Simulated scan of single mutants.
Amino acid sequence: MVRFFPDKLKEYVCKILQNVGLSQEDSKVVADSLVGANLRGVDSHGVTRLPIYVKRLKLGVVNPKPNVKILEESDATLLIDGDNGMGQIVGKKAIELGLEKARKNGAVFIGVKHSNHFGTGAFFVQMGVKKDMITYAMSNAPSTMAPWGGIKPYIGTNPFAFGVPAGKYNPIILDMATSVVARGKIITAAREGKEIPLGWAIDKEGKPTTDAKAALDGSVLPFGGPKGYAISLMIDIMSGVLTGAGFGPYVNNIYGDFDKPQNVGHFFQLIDISRFMPVEKFKQRVDQMIEEIKSSPKAHGVDEIYLPGEIEFNNEKKRRVEGIFLTKEVYEDIKAVGEEVGVNIEEYLYVDKSIGKNVVPDS
């Protein structure tokens, strides 16, 4: 394990992305998304994604300076062309355009095409929640999940996120994949040579497996069986079919299709709370729900009942103080990427001045 403080890790990611063509402003957006995921404990969507982002930028299959523009709009809708930009950059622009329209008209639906992997949905949801908007974000992804009852992948682990602001408490933020587990966690397990729990995936013959590499050759499983499959399908229809982006097997693989854009689609919704009731009254009502849930009777062996996103907020609070610990494998991967583009990772490491070296936890 190797330790970084968040701001230094962001600086390192920014410098690398600038050296492969991103502007200073855009590199900060992507770095905020990646390091933000690590802070929240969602390491599968953190800086472990940096090598593949850089590879695709260097190969020219991602546009480092996209002209994100509105193709169609009405009072309540936006259709946005991401110009093959990085998903975080495209998604942030979409939210910014949507906030303006939602404030004016009460709500907005935003479709996005010609984009790429956008990281965590919570990254975008928090943008809207901070502006007192109920916010919904979803995206499609390359086909890695078979339709329920099948064995050949057709749809993605299509994620969705939902957020509402609270008053004196943290906002409630749901962010999840429609698979039992995000495929990024299986990728991480394969890279580290670890097994995965039974029930996460099947191999290419449709048999349950604990072998992470066999799982990557097979199919991840939807959460809730046919329910997760159905929700993933609907997300693909909204993000891909409706927007004009790729859908199903027509979303290209970030890790395999190095000669063509991904053409990922996203779909966002922003709702102005003040069109229903005063914002402060809404927040008080959410606070009431939080307090009643937290104080409700607990099952045997349960120490605390959590709200969606609460564990991630706790992780972030802790990691901002103690730092972010990366596994040796992830560290070596992002170190190599830096070397490729002339950035020395040693300059960004946390060093304990009392002992003159990076601190490695016992675990």
Rank of each mutant, 00 (worst) to 15 (best):
E205S: 15
I187S: 08
R191F: 11
A177P: 07
A201L: 07
L216P: 05
A201I: 04
R191K: 12
P208V: 02
A166D: 09
A177L: 11
I202K: 05
G163Y: 14
T209S: 07
K213M: 10
Y169C: 10
A166S: 13
T209W: 10
E205L: 11
G167C: 09
I196Q: 03
I172K: 02
K168A: 01
T157I: 04
V164H: 05
A177Y: 07
G163E: 15
I202L: 15
I202Y: 01
P208C: 06
D217L: 06
G184A: 15
T188P: 13
A182W: 14
I196K: 12
M176H: 05
K194L: 03
G167D: 12
I172C: 05
K213T: 04
R183E: 09
K207A: 01
N170A: 12
F162R: 03
L174A: 06
I173H: 11
L216G: 01
E192M: 09
F160W: 08
I172R: 04
L174F: 15
D211L: 09
K168S: 00
A212M: 15
P197W: 04
A182K: 07
V181K: 08
G199Q: 03
P165K: 07
F160A: 02
A189M: 15
T178I: 03
I186E: 03
K204G: 00
L216N: 09
N170L: 08
E195W: 13
G184T: 15
V164A: 14
K207M: 11
T178V: 01
M176A: 12
I186L: 10
A214K: 14
D175L: 12
F160R: 01
M176F: 08
A182M: 13
L174S: 09
A166C: 10
V164N: 05
T209C: 10
E205R: 14
W200C: 14
A190M: 04
K185I: 01
A214I: 07
V164M: 14
G163D: 14
T178R: 05
A177R: 01
P208L: 04
I202D: 05
P208G: 05
A201Y: 07
N158C: 07
E205F: 14
V164T: 06
V180C: 06
I196R: 10
P171L: 02
I172Y: 03
A215T: 01
I186T: 10
A214W: 02
T178Q: 06
R191V: 08
G163L: 15
I155G: 00
P159V: 00
G167V: 10
A190L: 06
P208T: 13
M176K: 12
